[in-house]
Design a protein around this nucleic acid. Structure first.
Length: 444
RNA sequence: GGUCCUAUCGUCUAGUGGCCUAGGACACAGCCCUUUCAAGGCUGCGGCGCGGGUUCGAAUCCCGCUAGGACCGCCA
């Protein structure tokens, strides 16, 4: 971990929707850079679009960030030395600097609006940590389908500052050392540099991040399904996994390290290792990463991840001890890619009802099976190993008997599924009484 | 139309002139394990967009082409 305590970066969402994948990705990289350097991560709300911004979305975005594990050091909710952190509360500041620009002849009024004058012939190139040298002349700042140079609106007719202007004022006043944001802002950067210069301010270091694309390689949008971070939570993806997955989009530790924790990522993170190419959001990889984290969880944490999904399915979670449920999930380790799947695949541990709803015996040799079950339940100890030994002895002593002919009916009676962890281990955990109850329901 | 950006297996990427007959991961296929299915182990399939240079030597540097993309809003 390097120690550039003066590093200050920010995530500046506009509260016009929930925290989406792209926003979470940007926030994550800023957080990573701040934590890597032991610097500060600031949250600023860009709510200058009066029509679309709401306090509800502001809350949703903040809780989305918390869910991902991205904590900030300064922000509208906790304050800080450079507030306020909501643009709608900084209107006087924007107005003052705009007037200054007008007085210096660098901007002009147009009705209620204030427009920044773009002069031709200026070199507004900059060096991006990710993209390298980007060369631009102000002469290229044209109006669409025209040769006319396009001046920059800085204060709108409604008195609110525009993005390209407010972002400069705030980033400077909030002492940002690095501006880390999506690649779609590269073209905005030269305009912002013009404003920094007009105000006589030092330009921060820029680092643009590659975009995130859908399977069809188009910019990620609602068409691709889930775009809000919360939708992933509801699908059973865990915050650790989303963090891990998002961190891998456009960055790698460079040492085949793919499954990691937040603190490991913060330790290894380097802006200079961020890639330039837009990355496709790959569900298969997300699933894999989620599964890995699911496997690695401590039993009590795993239970806390799965429980909500059992409850949602109406299962009587409260009638079991946490220990029992944790053990059940430990047995399930490696099964299911999401918390939701794992909950679905393990419902029989919580209740016999779903089993009954799923399975009805058909075409089985009940006589033989009853003989088998009788021996099984006569076992002096209800342990997986003992039960399996009984089964093997039974098979050895019966001509033509196969393990699967007995293990599968047992599995179905206990779980209602054709797939489960080792059935004798399941039986041990469920306990003799419960197993007997289930088997007797179907046989005998 | 203008400005800018990008280009390694299907996907995420390693790679910064020789260690590359291009490495890893996901996905996919096969095998092993096995009471089922996962997990795990092993094997396989599969890529430097094209064309020119520079160089003893290029995935790596330069030019062109092609293909994607971003921005050009009193949205952010």
């Amino acid at each position: 971990m390097s120690d550039n305590k003066n590093v200050r970066v920010r995530f500046a969402p506009s509260p016009t929707g929930a925290l989406h994948i792209g926003g979470g990705h940007t926030a994550l990289f800023n957080w990573l850079w701040a934590r890597h350097n032991n610097g500060k991560f600031i949250l600023r709300i860009e709510d200058t679009d009066l029509v679309r911004s709401t306090k509800e979305y502001e809350q949703t975005i903040m809780s989305g960030m918390k869910w991902l594990g991205l904590d900030w050091d300064e922000g509208p909710d906790i304050g800080g030395d450079y507030g306020p952190y909501r643009q709608s509360e900084r209107l006087d500041i924007y107005r003052d600097y705009a007037n200054k620009l007008v007085n210096e002849g660098k901007a002009y009024k147009d009705g209620e609006a204030i427009i920044f004058k773009v002069e031709p012939g200026q070199d507004i190139s900059f060096n991006d940590i990710v993209y390298g040298q980007i060369n631009v002349m102000s002469d290229g700042l044209k109006e669409q389908n025209s040769d006319k140079l396009k001046d920059i609106v800085i204060i709108k007719s409604d008195g609110m500052p525009t993005y390209n202007y407010a972002v400069v004022i705030d980033d400077h006043l909030m002492k940002m050392t690095h501006v880390i944001r999506g690649e779609d802002h590269i073209s905005n950067t030269p305009k912002q540099i013009l404003i920094y210069r007009a105000l006589g301010w030092e330009v921060p270091t820029f680092a643009h991040l590659p975009m995130i694309l859908g399977r069809d390689k188009k910019k990620l949008s609602k068409r691709h399904g889930a775009t809000s971070i919360y939708e992933y939570r509801d699908m059973g993806y865990m915050p650790d996994s989303m963090f891990n997955f998002l961190a891998l989009l456009g960055w790698s530790a460079g040492d085949d390290k793919e499954i990691f924790t937040r603190s490991q990522a913060a330790e290894w993170f380097e802006l200079s290792r961020v890639t330039k190419k837009a990355a496709v959001f790959d569900f298969d990889k997300l699933n894999y990463i989620n599964q890995e984290h699911l496997k690695a969880l401590a039993p009590d944490v795993r239970l806390s991840m799965i429980k909500p999904f059992w409850i949602e399915a109406g299962l009587p979670v409260e009638s079991h001890s946490d220990k029992y449920l944790e053990d059940a999930l430990t047995l399930m380790a490696g099964r299911g890619r999401t918390a939701k799947e794992m909950a679905e695949f393990s419902d029989y541990f919580v209740s016999f009802e779903p089993v009954k709803a799923r399975w009805t015996p058909e075409g089985l040799d009940k006589e033989k099976l009853n003989e088998f079950f009788k021996e099984l339940f006569a076992s002096p100890e209800w342990k997986a190993e003992a039960l399996e030994n009984i089964a093997r002895n039974f098979i050895a002593s019966h001509e033509g008997a196969k393990m699967k002919d007995y293990a599968m009916p047992l599995r179905f009676a206990l779980t209602g599924m054709k797939v489960s962890p080792g059935i004798f281990e399941v039986a041990e955990l469920m306990g003799k009484d419960e197993c007997e109850k289930r088997v007797k329901f179907y046989f005998d």
